[in-house]
Design a protein around this nucleic acid. Sequence first.
DNA 1: TAGACATATGTTAGCGCTAACATGTTGGCG
DNA 2: CGCCAACATGTTAGCGCTAACATATGTCTA
Lengths: 344, 344
Amino acid sequence: MSSNDQGATRRRRGSEQVTLKQVAQAAGVSAITASRALNTPERVNETTRARVLDAVETLGYVPNLVAGSLASARSRFIAVIVPSLANAVFIEVIRGLQETFEARGYQILLGNTDYDLDREYQLVRTFLGWSCSALVTAGLRHNQACHTLLANWDKPIVEVMELGEALDINVGLDHLDAGRCMARHLRSRHYQEIVYVGARMSQDYRAEMRYAGHREILAEDGLDAPLIELDQLGSLEAGATGLDNVLAAYPRAEAIHFANDDLAAGALLHARRRGLAVPGDIAIAGFNGLPLGQHITPRLTTIQSPRDAMGRLAAREVLRKLDGEPGALQQHDVGFSLLQGEST
Amino acid sequence: MSSNDQGATRRRRGSEQVTLKQVAQAAGVSAITASRALNTPERVNETTRARVLDAVETLGYVPNLVAGSLASARSRFIAVIVPSLANAVFIEVIRGLQETFEARGYQILLGNTDYDLDREYQLVRTFLGWSCSALVTAGLRHNQACHTLLANWDKPIVEVMELGEALDINVGLDHLDAGRCMARHLRSRHYQEIVYVGARMSQDYRAEMRYAGHREILAEDGLDAPLIELDQLGSLEAGATGLDNVLAAYPRAEAIHFANDDLAAGALLHARRRGLAVPGDIAIAGFNGLPLGQHITPRLTTIQSPRDAMGRLAAREVLRKLDGEPGALQQHDVGFSLLQGEST
DNA sequence: TAGACATATGTTAGCGCTAACATGTTGGCG
DNA sequence: CGCCAACATGTTAGCGCTAACATATGTCTA
């Protein structure tokens, strides 16, 4: 008589949660068999499986995924990090990711950096702590700590939106070249005084790259490439302000190259309100190829980027890696195309 | 001599993860003290905490949140379930939620039902399995199993978008009344032949409720309320189609009440392309108050709903509950207002 | 008929962390 | 000076699940 009746098992919380053990007991099998019946059904006899599923139904069992993840050291989470939810572009990429991943039983874990790389690092730390199966982030730039952390992580990482030196998989397009493409188009229309307008460009370095491409082409012809930066997020409203600012600062401007379609469309609609002819008085171009631009009159000249395709492609590459299939290319250029409207 | 050298601890995986134990050892404290230093710093001596943080830094420790959640039976997840990511309305609600929750260290777990209640049930099961701290879902309708599951769940639940009989917290507006409001407006303009146009309305029952309100008002005046349903998701494109369909089916139509602004704006822009005067030839009204509608000419008459406010309010109420503050009202009517443009 | 092999299930030992309780240590007070 | 509270830290025992290693049982081959 000694270490026998140690006392009642102290229940930590109320915890009336139905556990796998109870399901197993009800089905007359061991816990591991119940686990297999739910997770790897092909490894369990059909009748056994039916009994387990029955018990699940009867008891109203909801698997504790936290426990499962801890035991197996993996979750079915995909971390997705974007700089903003206010921008339709990221929404469409997220949608592409979401469609593909949810169909395969993965959950999206969404983080928003607000264009702050330190915030990105925090999010990455948190997400790694959740044993995510993969991580998708917008852009190639990270702070030092974040870079180190990711470089030592052994699961698939996708950097989307732009191309360059990537950690793992890279899906995007060449923004420098996109900027050049539009600038060439504007030059081909013989515009000389061309102003570039961006919103919060110090944060949005992809817009900066497009501007760099734009400037490069104008420089080839010995032209200046004046820049106007708006201190607000891209929106129709901001585009209207942008137009006003350009006309005030550069009265002789013939064309405006906007960093994105929200701005361009806002300017275009505002031009009409002001009684300005587009492109007669001022030509307007954008970037992204949002539907809006193609529904207004005149249709917006812009650059079409395959955004949801980018998401889907990123997701497909991740799934391929997770399935252990031979990884194809690591870098995928999704390209872009000039969408010529009547606004230039 | 017996149960002594049980043998080497078999390492399950490669698992070179730095653990809290290692951090504790490096800092010369016990694991629980290290845990407290990170999670409840006020309960640990300042110098001890500094030593722990030092060790965290040195070793590159990333907390395993899965383990933490299992041990504490709670995660810092907020489940958010929406029927679609293609609709700007839900994006704005998500943004409101996200802003508020991320600032308080909660992560959004995003699910998309695609307007399928069975899919919603699956998502809810998954999310409960992650020990979410709260759940936010769009709408009051759930299937039986989902309702039961949620009704027995003991954490905050918010149903957003519409008002009615809710499980817990309810934040939204009265869609029936919104439909009435717009119909009254159109009647006040003396339109008689008014067609309602929706997209996939069998799925979007909030649009159906608005239609019901619309029909009610017209019936008061003894008028018919013809309905056209589009078999595609709401978009500018669909709105253009909607306009064409109305004109084909009801050549004498004077006004169109669209289920949302995407449709209405698409129709308005298309009307101009077809050379129709708005509202001279046909009046157009929408619902939502998206920025786009206020930037086109003529400005769209619509109903303004406070979408991101809805998200923020929902989040605030959840936080209040989680903080154990006395819950105020359970039901919050965020209201709406008629935004009169020149399109009617 | 031994053996090699596949199928179906069970036993054991953690995954990394934190709740609950226990203990030590200080300072203030009557 | 002894007592009690308030702080600071430690010990123990899981949280609910699954990986890894058994252990049956049947099935086919030489």
